[in-house]
Design a binder for these strands. Sequence first.
DNA 1: TAAATTTGGGAAACCCTTTTCTCGCCGAAA
DNA 2: TTTCGGCGAGAAAAGGGTTTCCCAAATTTA
Lengths: 337, 337
Amino acid sequence: MVVAANLDVRITIYDVAEAAGVSTATASKALNGTGRVSSETRARIKQVASDLGFRPNALARSLTRKRSFTVGLLTDDTYGRFTLPVMAGISEGLIDHGVSVFLCAIENSPELAKTHVDAMLDKQIDGIIATGKRVDRSLPVDLGHLPIPVVYALTAGPADAVTLVPDDRQGTSEAVGHLVRQGRRRIVHVTGPGSFRVVEERAAAFVEALHAAGLPAQTSAIMRGSWSERWGHEAVEALWSGTDRPDGICCGNDQIARGVVDALRERGVDVPLDVSVVGFDNWEIVAEQTRPPLTTIDMNLKELGRQAGQTLVRLVNGEAVETGLWRLPCTLVVRGS
Amino acid sequence: MVVAANLDVRITIYDVAEAAGVSTATASKALNGTGRVSSETRARIKQVASDLGFRPNALARSLTRKRSFTVGLLTDDTYGRFTLPVMAGISEGLIDHGVSVFLCAIENSPELAKTHVDAMLDKQIDGIIATGKRVDRSLPVDLGHLPIPVVYALTAGPADAVTLVPDDRQGTSEAVGHLVRQGRRRIVHVTGPGSFRVVEERAAAFVEALHAAGLPAQTSAIMRGSWSERWGHEAVEALWSGTDRPDGICCGNDQIARGVVDALRERGVDVPLDVSVVGFDNWEIVAEQTRPPLTTIDMNLKELGRQAGQTLVRLVNGEAVETGLWRLPCTLVVRGS
DNA sequence: TAAATTTGGGAAACCCTTTTCTCGCCGAAA
DNA sequence: TTTCGGCGAGAAAAGGGTTTCCCAAATTTA
């Protein structure tokens, strides 16, 4: 049988105290495990609280504790391809600590960002996580002089803050390493626009990885374009119109890789028999639908989000945390290409 | 010149009252536009508050007002293709009302969902928006007996609540109407698994739209499969192995449409010269990269999110709102297919 | 001019919890 | 038997606002 709960009458600590025949001070101490309360009294109060279904009002608690167990999540990425796994990781990593997350989609608008930040400050949030879609761009709002800690994830932050990003270099090494292990010797890098810092980082790592494998690395082996399938097609056309055709292609993202694989198939080049292709991002919707499914690099964004959340909690708790850029490892995901 | 703000010393209403030479009661009334205060006094207090940079502590305010100007957003969709635009719309539609949004990724776990809901209830949220990836599935938590209003968006809700979904029927009509206007007469529908309710709704609307156009509509013109590019390929293969080939294909989503278009191109069938193809979802990353770019149906999910947020606010304000399923119109987006 | 209103503003209670300070009591040491 | 220390518990003061009276002065009405 279901007992009709008095949903619109919240049980307060006064009710608990009265029912247990103690003062609210004692009830509070008993319930929170602070202060000095005899174990019998403590047990009794806890029992009463549980019987009554008492749940403390977090607002009132935050008012005195000056901790709201709430943090803000700022993002300029409504498209969400990168941000969403990060957000999910943050949410997951924080709920265990009883921390809730305010979502703020700021749309690249400084005014909107300020509105959100002010609203959250008024709500006494404990900290902020800033996240975006580009590691080399910062959000259109200055979070540097806030009275609360800020952690940056997948967006540019100041040097004296913690900024979490995927380790693009290590990820690229993994990709090249895989191609080398497949016996590939003529490897090229088809990547995005040089205006993206990750492009140059990965390009440098690409050259380095080839060297490490004892392979020649011409800079001509690095082809920059857009982050699109179209560019994958164009790159293949350019490569196959010459005589020095590659047998391994390391791509800047999965969309380019998809274009490359499609273009190769259309030319009758077999993947992975004739040419091996590795993508980047492990964007499953693209990687799994490619024929054959893409071997690619996963940036472990969910884990990155989780760590961002936990780092923020540590900062809020006053723990010392090493500032600067944290590069989190990427993982090779082997599929069919 | 920048004045160094005392960031760690919050200005309270006591400070404002003292500086203005009035009581806190008067200050509160003046700032909130309530009670009876002379217009000069009101103006003076407002000026003082602004000079001091006073911002009320939302926690303290919520404690007495019993309104926290915070709502919860529950989602089981960490992949986010559908949810993210909805979330962005919610966030945008609510910040104008000074309402912040708690993000809860519940991952299909009832325990996690309950943890989140309890945490938010403790934080005195004013309402909840439940959102998901399937209109015919509900979240793994019962939100029916909560003391606060709940709005459902893109997920199944009880009949006595407001549930917002895209108008799949109208969207399908738009798609078919477009094909008909292109002069197409032999139109088929390549769609997803029959286990999805939207599939059957769209199928029914497809038949209806053909009738309305005076075209014959056999049920054999509806081909159900998976939501994948692969299925698009397979469907084309099946269709073109017969003699009764279509000249218009209405697809269940953009991925299927993409597969269809690719398969047609590989067969040397020209899109849109020989065959017109319409997708569904307007998932830009797919639609724009298809060759030619996909004509498709946009579900206006951001607008749906915005309306969900505003509806929730109205419910929180005690306004009467018509319950049941709200079908929000879709829009045809014409591209090259 | 006296009575009845209206007006502007303040005192105090309230929202719910935590925390500090105080105090009585009991057992142990002197 | 007195003193001291520790223990358990409560009173009261935050914490930062809002809101409900209530009162005195100014204004209107009779």
